[in-house]
């Protein structure tokens, strides 16, 4: 079992002919993901080459869904077109929309996240690495070779920090149900609490790893949710303990403002909810191994 995506997912890619889109879709195909369609306006009907050979191209998401039954979309379009791409996917009936694109204006995401969530559609991102269900489907850019199927659910605001943790888990022989990168922007389609609820409901997930960082209050909300609703063990980590206030640390959402959103506050909240918090990334896999009795 897994959450959001699995081997039955029919994935379409918006922006499949761009540099990033083509490169990462190639890796999605190679890792066994069922990529059923590509969408680039004006390139409908064109033949793709290399790893993407045989993936049919469409001008609109509506055409692609009609012809292929796609139910998951992965978006690589440039930031100024991202909001439009998400709404196009939502209107075409896509159930899970993953937006990899970085640098999307936050006002666009206020409009879009409210619109798609009100329709019960799952939107992951923007500014995220996407997600992977090892052995099932990879939707986004998380390297498949550092993952393996198993009992741990991973949710994170980060990209490469998540790869570190996946690599450490896999190296110890500890696999994952699904790893979800929810993204580093201030307004995200999916927050920690949404993913935690899914992992709690997923029978195959035995333990959850949650990787947060400075900025906002989503980790505190997640801690409260875990205390009230999650019976599975949770291992946490918060990046940015040494980050100065008032500075954006790479991710648009990673900023301590008005004294709020510090790592210390978040770590306190997680610990108060009974979550084991690792002091550094290498320790996450150690704690997980201990808790799983490996």
């Amino acid at each position: 079992m897994s959450i959001y995506v699995d081997a039955s997912s029919r994935v379409l890619v918006q922006g499949i002919t761009g540099r990033e889109g083509a490169f990462h879709t190639g890796h999605m195909v190679k890792s066994g993901t069922n990529v059923v369609a590509g969408v680039t306006p004006g390139k409908g009907g064109q033949a793709l080459e290399g790893d993407l050979a045989g993936v049919p191209m469409f001008n609109t998401v509506r055409d692609a869904v009609k012809a292929t039954g796609a139910d998951v979309s992965c978006i690589f379009v440039p930031a100024k077109f991202a909001a439009d791409a998400v709404l196009e996917a939502a209107d075409a009936g896509i159930a899970v929309i993953v937006t990899i694109t970085e640098g999307v204006p936050v006002h666009d995401m206020i409009r879009v996240t409210n619109s798609v969530r009100s329709r019960g559609i799952t939107m992951i991102g923007p500014n995220c690495p996407g997600m992977i269900t090892p052995g099932g489907a990879k939707v986004g850019i998380i390297p498949a070779n550092i993952c393996t199927p198993g009992p741990v659910g991973v949710v994170s605001r980060s990209g490469t920090l998540t790869y570190e943790v996946l690599h450490a888990l896999t190296s110890r022989g500890i696999g994952q149900t699904t790893a979800v990168g929810i993204g580093g922007d201030p307004v995200q389609g999916t927050k920690f609490v949404d993913v935690l609820a899914r992992f709690q409901a997923d029978p195959a997930t035995e333990l959850i790893v949650m990787i947060g960082e400075i900025g906002g209050t989503d980790e505190e909300a997640a801690a409260a949710f875990v205390a009230a609703n999650v019976t599975k063990p949770v291992v946490g980590f918060i990046a940015g303990q040494t980050a100065p206030p008032g500075k954006t640390m790479g991710h648009a959402g990673a900023i301590i403002s008005g004294g709020k959103g510090t790592a210390a506050e978040k770590i306190r909240a997680l610990q108060a909810a009974g979550i084991a918090v690792a002091r550094h990334p290498d320790e996450i896999a150690e704690i997980v191994a201990g808790q799983l009795g490996r």
């Binding site: 994170s156 605001r157 980060s158 990209g159 490469t160 920090l161 998540t162 570190e164 580093g184 990787i211 960082e213 400075i214 980590f237 990046a239 940015g240 040494t242 980050a243 640390m249 790479g250 991710h251 990673a254 550094h280 990334p281």
Partner: peptide
Amino acid sequence: NGAGLAMA
């Protein structure tokens, strides 16, 4: 490489 990993 990566903001989260850089902070960590």
